[in-house]
Nucleic acid binder design. Structure first.
Length: 476
RNA sequence: GGCGCCAUCGUCUAGUGGUUAGGACCCAGGAUUUUCAUUCCUGUAACCGGAGUUCGAUCCUCCGUGGCGCUACCA
């Protein structure tokens, strides 16, 4: 399997979105699984919509996902001469012809006839007619001279697809302003880059016959094609802003681990044969098979993505999680700067206690803030349920007193204190535990309470209970 | 309008000419005599419709229907 060369070819008209990232991932997976080259091409021939800053943004997202590319990226905007030359070549061989029809004329004729395809008016122009037009400086586009017959290929994902050439328009290769169209530039570049497998979105299936015709016109070898089903939103429509975050960078900013995004996108529409769904990039490479990709468009499901992300966080080394959350903790003013060794140990333990519950790194700062500062508010629902009356204050005051007298503030001693008091008061331990958790964390859920109290330390715990005693219950 | 692709639980999917149609996420219930946003267990839930082929179709064929895509001097 030598000489496998694939490319990811984004247009810099926006940040890298989920669908594009998925295409890139499959290309990358295929290249790495087959000892091939993964190349990049920037399709910036649409000068109106392309922006420089997006290029860097796309690079950044690819790097963040852990995909490195081989060779220097190819920029279409720098290959104008090549397109001109290639067009001339097709003109010479008769595979293309000049078209002097203007957009307005075309539209008028389309409207009048009701026929969508180009009427091929300029196909039969004589050489003298062409020269006359050219000599007066008339603007000309160059169109593909589509031959009769059928065009077919065997798609790595979809199988055999065949199209009657009657259905194919004499599409434009070079616009009258000299810029190539997508169809043309893609083929010229894929030949130039010696691409062996074209792996791209399913929206290009209909374009493929045109491109195959071009390969033939150039007398070039035709690559393998693999089309990927598209990504949809929950309503089955094409993924867009109204479905929420669609940019890879947005997920990074929300604190999701890169491996989780990579993993979920990879298994969306493709499940490894062994049923293992939580996999690192290298493990995905081992299992990846183009032919196994489903042919149905898939819906990005945030719930499942969250699950995947949580699974990755659970498996991650505490030290690695620490690296990721340190800047977030600082940002949220939970710690002031790089912690010293004891601070670091504290954070590591905090991670160990909490990581099984979180789906992204930000939650460590949000849902875990009470490890670093006293709660400022108390979860409404929990207050209503566990601390709705002053009777709770009476009990907690007693508990506070008992805890204060504790010499050894350990999980074990705390637990027995709480349980003994519950016995004395003739109530269930939960009646003390729930308010206790609320006072200390502000939440109704969290890790084991006794372990948590020991971890936070006596001073902090007592202070927080006192504060809660003052503030709860909240009157309406 | 034309052409193309697709169609199994809500979602991602496995699968077969005869299966109790399997798994994962979600959801629901239960257990862990402290919680759940941890952990474990259990459960609900699907073959788009109609013909045809066949002893038998979720599976094969055809026709519908629906979704998506392409149909630009966008990519």
């Amino acid at each position: 399997m030598s000489d496998i060369r694939v490319r990811f070819a984004p247009s810099p008209t926006g940040a890298l979105h989920l669908g594009g990232a998925r295409t890139a991932i499959y290309n990358w997976l295929f290249a790495r699984a087959n000892e091939g080259q993964f190349l990049l091409r920037i399709e910036d021939t649409d000068t109106k919509r392309s922006k420089k800053e997006y290029i860097e943004q796309i690079y950044e997202s690819l790097r963040w996902l852990g995909m490195s590319w081989d060779e220097e990226p190819v920029f279409q905007s720098q290959r104008m001469a090549a397109y001109q030359q290639a067009a001339q070549e097709l003109l010479q061989s008769g595979s293309a012809y000049y078209c002097f029809c203007t957009s307005e004329e075309l539209e008028a004729r389309r409207k009048a006839s009701g026929v969508y395809q180009y009427d091929r008016k300029c196909r039969s122009l004589s050489e003298t007619e062409i020269n006359t037009h050219l000599n007066v400086g008339k603007k000309a586009a160059i169109r593909c001279n589509v031959p009769a017959g059928t065009t077919e290929w065997s798609d790595c994902v979809y199988g055999k697809i065949s199209v009657n050439n009657d259905e194919i328009d004499d599409f434009i290769l070079l616009r009258s302003n000299g810029f190539p169209t997508y169809q043309f530039a893609v083929v010229v570049d894929d030949i130039f880059m010696r691409i062996s497998h074209v792996i791209r979105g399913e929206d290009h299936i209909s374009n493929t016959p045109k491109q195959i015709l071009l390969y033939k016109a150039f007398g070039a070898g035709i690559p393998e094609f693999a089309h990927l089903p598209l990504l949809n939103g929950t309503d089955g429509k094409r993924l867009s802003k109204r479905h929420g975050a669609t940019g890879v960078d947005e997920y990074r900013d929300q604190g999701y681990p890169a491996e989780a995004v990579f993993n979920y996108l990879a298994i969306l529409g493709w499940v490894p044969k062994d049923g293992n769904e939580i996999l690192k990039p290298a493990e995905l490479v081992q299992r990846f098979l183009l032919a196994d990709i489903a042919r149905k468009s898939a819906v990005f499901d945030l719930k499942k993505f969250d699950w995947v992300s949580n699974e990755h966080i659970k498996r991650m080394e505490n030290a690695e999680i620490c690296r990721h959350i340190l800047p977030i903790l600082i940002d949220n003013h939970l710690i002031s700067a790089e912690p010293d060794e004891s601070g670091r140990q504290y954070i590591l333990k905090f991670i160990d206690l909490m990581k099984s519950r979180f789906r992204n790194f930000r939650q460590f700062a949000e849902l875990g803030s009470y490890f670093f500062k006293d709660p400022e508010t108390y979860e409404d629902k929990a207050v209503r349920k566990n601390w709705k009356e002053t009777e709770v204050n009476r009990r907690m005051a007693i508990l506070l007193d008992k805890l204060q007298q504790l010499e050894e503030f350990s999980a074990v001693s705390i637990e027995s204190t709480v349980r003994e008091l519950a016995d004395e008061l003739d109530i269930s331990a939960g009646k003390l535990i729930h308010p206790l958790r609320l006072a200390v964390s502000g939440y109704s859920v969290g890790p084991g309470i006794f372990e948590l109290l020991e971890f936070l330390g006596k001073e902090t715990v007592l202070r927080r209970i006192q504060a809660a005693l003052q503030r709860l219950p909240v009157s309406e």
